[in-house]
Design a protein around this nucleic acid. Sequence first.
DNA 1: TATAAATCGTGATTTTTTTCTTGATTTATT
DNA 2: AATAAATCAAGAAAAAAATCACGATTTATA
Lengths: 206, 206
Amino acid sequence: MSKNIPEKITNRLTLYHSIMVEYLEAGIETISSPQIAQRLGIDDSQVRKDFKLLNNAGKCRVGYMVRDLKDSIEKTLGFAHAKDAFIVGAGHLGLALAKYDSFNSYGLNILALFDNDPQKVDMQVNNKQIFHISKLPNLAERLGVDIAILTVPRQNAQQVADFLIDSNIKYIWNFTPAVLKVPPTVKVWNENLMGSFLQFACKDII
Amino acid sequence: MSKNIPEKITNRLTLYHSIMVEYLEAGIETISSPQIAQRLGIDDSQVRKDFKLLNNAGKCRVGYMVRDLKDSIEKTLGFAHAKDAFIVGAGHLGLALAKYDSFNSYGLNILALFDNDPQKVDMQVNNKQIFHISKLPNLAERLGVDIAILTVPRQNAQQVADFLIDSNIKYIWNFTPAVLKVPPTVKVWNENLMGSFLQFACKDII
DNA sequence: TATAAATCGTGATTTTTTTCTTGATTTATT
DNA sequence: AATAAATCAAGAAAAAAATCACGATTTATA
């Protein structure tokens, strides 16, 4: 569908999207590339080039239609294309993500959580049940789920990932700091919160 | 101190660091650039160039000392340089982050949480107290805190950010999807979980 | 209606990042 | 001791990304 947009551009698209949401809420119907550029601290021609990629034409002296931009960004990023996923690891972070309702409107549908702690099993979080991890392969197959959000402790990350791979999980959104070893058929997306912070902190706090 | 290392390189440094931790735990003392490169799916000369930046010489046919690499990455990223921070917004995500103990070993020290919900005020989370948001300016000044982790709902993000800026907060780690408007003296680091997922999902799920 | 100002679209240029290549060095092996 | 294999180092080349520059268009204003 989408012609493999570079990561950097996708990242900017998500930022543009947030701004569109804000403008829509404020009842502003058009937006210009210099406005966006200034907000994000980038060049305005960059913004226009990105929008070109979305086949979204602007109007000189006026700008772009906010609603159209929002729609085409959502189309490009696949908001409507709902994706089912499991959360693996029902610790603080896993629970927080399970309660994070915005996932839904962005096309991510959390179906259930998994953990190996018997105390947590069968609890409900935000209408999603926590299952024992041993139930995952069966449920993944029955429900056709191939996305897992990994929120276990670092020490168990690789072991659990191996188990997920055996269960035919194809996409792992990795919130652990571990760098997972996976076969080429499996895609990993590293969130790495601490790494992210360090990038920030390094900028000039030190 | 650190000579403003580009974001991309910093990001790779955090990944290298994770691998070093893993190798150390496994008792492996040396590591080669091709090993790392293969693991991360990048070119090995890239890895060597990054290490060059750290002034970390390798040894032909052997590789680099894991311990040395880990130390110099930590030095470059400022692990030892402890930074105090507040969490603003004691919702699910804020609480999860407050309970996330790994922050400490990476040089981030959460001192307290803030919220405007009277029910949450005075509760303790992982030995950190939740204060009413109105207490923030005073505490920030007294404790010399200028870093805030923003985990409020998107709708309140800008308003709270403005308040933080008035309170002399200089660094905002923004977990809300809002694109904050801040003066040039304030630095924002956008986490944007959904945006991150969309980048991942776009890769080829659609 | 003419002029000015803002903005788009896009090709050219520059900068940054990544990959390629080659030579030197070290260790293991015969 | 000679040879082979793995690895580092570093400059060259290629690719990707960002910025610049400018003509064309549209709207507002004099």
